[in-house]
């Protein structure tokens, strides 16, 4: 049976090795893949987009590994910060590319087919409305809310991912939640 020599290494050693050893990076990937994908999926509800975000996260992480400085919070918060940035970028691009008018034109061209499963989910619950309104927020607020609520990180880890203290993070999350409530109210029915 093939044994991965990196499997038992602690995370700090693994990160150091990963700067030069692709197999060590692959081990980090295996440890975090499911969590990163879950984070991206919870934010987007679309498997294909979650896959894109996951790919982009690990590619960027690999390319930026030399800029990573080890901290007590570990590798995870740094990686999730990349994911949250990718999510913000995704929604920024999506809002540029897909205006309401373009959507209507596409609908007219293609007709209304059976809805995607993601559409069905989005149409059903309050959480979906809240997520849909999130991309109206500033990038900082989007990052704070997604890291705090959707990433699966603890409050401490989420603060580390934001690069703030826990107290500052709490304030940012409070303000972001308030802004999100306004965005939900302002959203068309």
């Amino acid at each position: 049976m093939k044994v991965d020599p990196h499997e038992d290494l602690d995370e700090r050693t693994l990160v150091e090795l990963a700067r030069a050893d692709p197999e060590a990076f692959a081990q980090l990937y295996r440890r975090y893949f499911a969590r990163v994908y879950a984070f991206a999926y919870r934010r987007t509800s679309v498997p294909e987009i979650a896959e894109d975000i996951t790919s982009a996260t690990f590619e960027r992480a690999f390319r930026s590994l030399d800029t990573f400085t080890w901290r007590a919070s570990g590798f995870g918060p740094w990686l999730f910060r990349i994911t949250s940035n990718e999510l913000v970028d995704h929604y920024r691009r999506a809002s540029r590319a897909t205006s309401d008018r373009a959507l209507r034109a596409a609908e007219a061209l293609h007709g209304a087919g059976p809805p995607d499963p993601a559409d069905a989910v989005l149409g059903r619950d309050a959480a979906a409305d809240v997520l849909a309104a999130m991309d109206q927020l500033s990038p900082r607020y989007q990052r704070a809310l997604s890291l705090r609520y959707l990433s699966g990180l603890t409050a401490d880890e989420a603060a580390a991912a934001m690069g703030t203290s826990k107290a500052t993070m709490a304030v940012v999350v409070y303000r972001a939640t308030r802004a999100l409530r306004r965005a939900v109210k302002a959203a068309p029915e």
Binding site: Y37, A38, Y41, E51, T54, A128, R148, Y149, R181
Partner: peptide, 22 residues
């Protein structure tokens, strides 16, 4: 107030995630 929004976010964070494609 913010509770509804927070609850919705917490729900979203607990949402079941389908297995990613192998």
């Amino acid at each position: 107030m913010n509770d509804e929004v927070r609850n919705a976010l917490e729900d979203a964070g607990r949402r079941e995630v389908p297995e990613p494609r192998d």
